[in-house]
Amino acid sequence: MPVTLLGASEIRSLAADLDVTPTKKLGQNFVVDANTVRKIVQVARVVEGDRVVEVGPGLGSLTLAILERGASVTAVEIDHRLAERLPATARAHGVPDGALTVVDADALRVTALPGDPTVLVANLPYNVSVPVLLHFLETFPQLQRGVVMVQAEVGERLAAPPGSKVYGAPSVKAAWYGRWRLAGTVSRQVFWPVPNVDSVLVAFERNADARGTEEERRSTFRIVDAAFQQRRKMLRQALSASLGDSASASAVLEAAGVAPTARGEELSVEDFLRIARVL
Results as ranks from 00 to 15, higher is better:
Arg81Ser: 08
Ala92Phe: 01
Phe228Val: 10
Val119Tyr: 11
Leu59Tyr: 02
Ile40Phe: 05
Leu279Phe: 00
Gln42Leu: 09
Leu113Gly: 08
Leu5Tyr: 05
Arg263Asp: 01
Leu62His: 00
Trp192Gln: 02
Pro141Trp: 11
Leu273Met: 08
Leu134Asn: 06
Ser250Ile: 05
Val278Lys: 09
Val200Ile: 11
Ala174Leu: 01
Ser171Met: 04
Leu124Arg: 03
Ser171Arg: 02
Glu156Pro: 00
Arg263His: 10
Arg157Gly: 01
Gly98Asp: 06
Gly257Cys: 14
Ser72Arg: 15
Val132Ala: 10
Arg145Ser: 03
Val55Ile: 15
Gly60Gln: 05
Leu14His: 14
Arg263Asn: 06
Val200Asn: 01
Leu182Asn: 14
Leu134Cys: 04
Ser248Tyr: 08
Ala210Thr: 12
Ala174Pro: 01
Ala15Met: 15
Ala276Arg: 12
Ala203Tyr: 05
Ala152Asp: 14
Trp176Ala: 04
Leu243Gly: 11
Pro125Ile: 10
Ala34Thr: 14
Pro260His: 11
Val224Tyr: 02
Glu205Pro: 00
Leu134Phe: 12
Leu86His: 00
Asp245Gly: 13
Glu266Asn: 10
Val121Gly: 00
Leu182Phe: 13
Asp104Trp: 04
Arg181Ser: 13
Ala251Leu: 11
Ser129Val: 06
Glu68Phe: 01
Ala83Asp: 03
Ala276Met: 12
Val269Cys: 14
Ala210Val: 12
Val269Pro: 00
His80Val: 01
Ala8Asn: 13
Val132Gly: 05
Ser242Met: 15
Ala203Thr: 03
Asp225Gly: 05
Ser219Ile: 03
Asp97Pro: 14
Pro22Gly: 10
Lys173Ser: 07
Ala92His: 04
Ala92Thr: 04
Arg145Phe: 04
Ala210Asn: 05
Lys233Trp: 05
Ala112Lys: 12
Val186Leu: 07
Arg232Val: 10
Thr74Arg: 06
Glu266Pro: 01
Gly184Ala: 06
Arg277Ala: 12
Asn123Arg: 06
Gln230Lys: 15
Lys233Val: 07
Phe221Ala: 07
Ala262Leu: 12
Ser13Ile: 00
Ala99Val: 06
Asp33Cys: 06
Leu18Val: 03
His93Met: 03
Phe228Gly: 04
Val186Ser: 05
Leu82Gly: 00
Glu216Ala: 10
Val53Glu: 04
Arg206His: 08
Arg217Lys: 12
Val202Glu: 10
Pro193Ile: 10
Thr261Lys: 09
Arg85Ala: 15
Leu18Asn: 02
Ala112Phe: 09
